[in-house]
Write a protein that binds this DNA or RNA. Sequence first.
DNA 1: AAACTGACTAATA
DNA 2: CTATTAGCCAGTT
Length: 109
Amino acid sequence: MKTSPRYQKIYARVRQIPEGQVATYGQIANLIGLPRGARQVGYALNSLTEGSDVPWHRVVNAKGEISLRSEPGCETIQRQLLEAEGITFDVHGRIDLEEHRWHEGTLSE
DNA sequence: AAACTGACTAATA
DNA sequence: CTATTAGCCAGTT
């Protein structure tokens, strides 16, 4: 499967997300140079495979909710993974973006 | 090549 | 809060 440069850029950003933090599609898109390409971020993640080094479970939508694939149950898996990393959900099943929102300048670079 | 679809976001009403 | 519109890129038909 040929991965386009933009996809690689998306994967690179998502890989940089540390544990206990999450990023939104729009945020990732903005960082890589696609201010309105949030869709492409989700599409890129959808194209991912189990062997990828990309923590796609740390990427959520603008509401802090989990976006799922075409398959049921993925939401549960993703939520459990996030909880295991220290992410907390509210009664609506949403993440506290104010608490867990990733600041791209918190790591190297 | 054209049209359609898809893990989305933001603005407006 | 919901509904609608427009924008983005890549892959499939």
